[in-house]
Design a protein around this nucleic acid. Structure first.
Lengths: 212, 212
DNA sequence: AAAAACATGTTGCACTTGCAACAAATAAGA
DNA sequence: TCTTATTTGTTGCAAGTGCAACATGTTTTT
């Protein structure tokens, strides 16, 4: 994922942030984050540290919806923060820039190179994010666990054009990503293995069916 | 949804399209669209006409994934076009601009106002689209039809801050949006009505449970 | 190295859901 | 208007899945 400040010098970054009326906040590990980020039209940039967006359901079960690493974006429009069950938590001391989308898109002064560069960077990031979301929707609209798994494996394998998939998360998180119960997914994967459709070795999946 | 050419004059639009190496194509109703649009990094803008992105499953059943109206965007990254089952079909004579994202984000010449305006317009559109996708994911990760319906109604009602939801599509399409079987959804809505959680009059839903 | 926390595998069971098939109601086209 | 196509409602049934509960394995913390 590109960095939002790619090709922008440190000096220009400061000018940019002033132009966009951005504010920098510091949060200590485990502190709760400003509710302002949940508001419409707010964009956050994590400069340093590590955040998670989690969901706490009515039983108190936590699931990680999204991880935010350094130089990544988050916010109510691009993450899932509108839902009241969802929260941003600070897992490590973090430095965060908050700004309002309207200050970006309603900017009059367009002669500044660093401003234009920033917008182009955001555009690139948003295209990639849209792509990720579309992929997830593609998977989530499959009606059975089996089909979600196969669609996911097929898609990931095709990205590298090989029959191997290296899972970017553990099985618990994969179940969350696919929107299914972990134990039911585990059962389904057993069947897939038994039927010779896949082979599993840790996080490396080998696809034995014909990819489409 | 904003227009990608907002605040850009017709004259400048032409310059812009030349700058971005865009090509204009004309398609007749029911003609098949260029396979080029399915390629990575292609962005389409529908100037005039009407398109649909549809999925044809192995049984030959068609479902409409997305509708593209005049001045709307589509493309492999922002729509779901990577899947082989999905196709763009021309429902009415259409005039389409095709361009490559790389020509947008790798543009060196940044002094042109119309170019910067175009990028800002795209940014706005992408933020809205990301938001829509997030909402759909939020709904699709609910595990029962009941919870998907309730989440959807709750979300839509909260947008206007009222207890009413006016469905933007018919029930068949709602079932597609929620990723569930139509008849099963119909059954579940019957239960919701019987239990006094909702009231349905055509496309107007009244929410009788407490919104969150 | 021991303890605690977390991840994975397994299974019975009740409940939910997709699917198929059909009737009835609406809408669209000739 | 009549005909045809599409949408909506309904239901039986088999298959799929969530949930709970627990055992085992692995990683992290102290």
């Amino acid at each position: 994922m590109p960095n939002p400040f790619d090709n922008i010098s440190v000096k220009n970054r400061e000018k940019l942030l002033k132009l966009l009326e951005a504010h920098t906040y510091y949060f200590q590990k485990n502190s709760s984050i400003l509710p302002i980020i949940k508001e419409e039209n707010m964009l956050g940039i994590l400069l340093t540290g590590y955040l998670q967006i989690i969901k706490i359901d009515h039983n108190g079960n936590k699931t990680i919806i999204e991880e935010i690493n350094e130089m990544e974006l988050f916010g109510s429009n691009i993450s899932s923060l509108k839902n009241n069950e969802n929260e941003v938590i600070v897992k490590e001391d973090s430095e965060i820039i908050l700004l309002d989308y309207n200050h970006i898109t309603q900017q009059e002064d367009e002669k500044k190179d660093y401003y234009n560069q920033f917008i182009k960077n955001l555009l690139k990031i948003f295209i990639l994010k849209l792509n990720e979301k579309n992929e997830r929707i593609e998977v989530l609209t499959k009606k059975t666990i089996r089909n979600r798994l196969l669609e996911y494996f097929n898609m990931e394998a095709n990205k590298h054009g090989s029959k191997y998939v290296y899972l970017p998360f553990n099985f618990t998180d994969l179940a969350d990503y696919l929107g299914v119960d972990r134990s039911a997914m585990s059962r389904e994967m057993k069947y897939l293995k038994e039927e010779g459709l896949i082979k599993v070795k840790g996080k490396k999946i080998t696809i034995l069916f014909e990819r489409t």
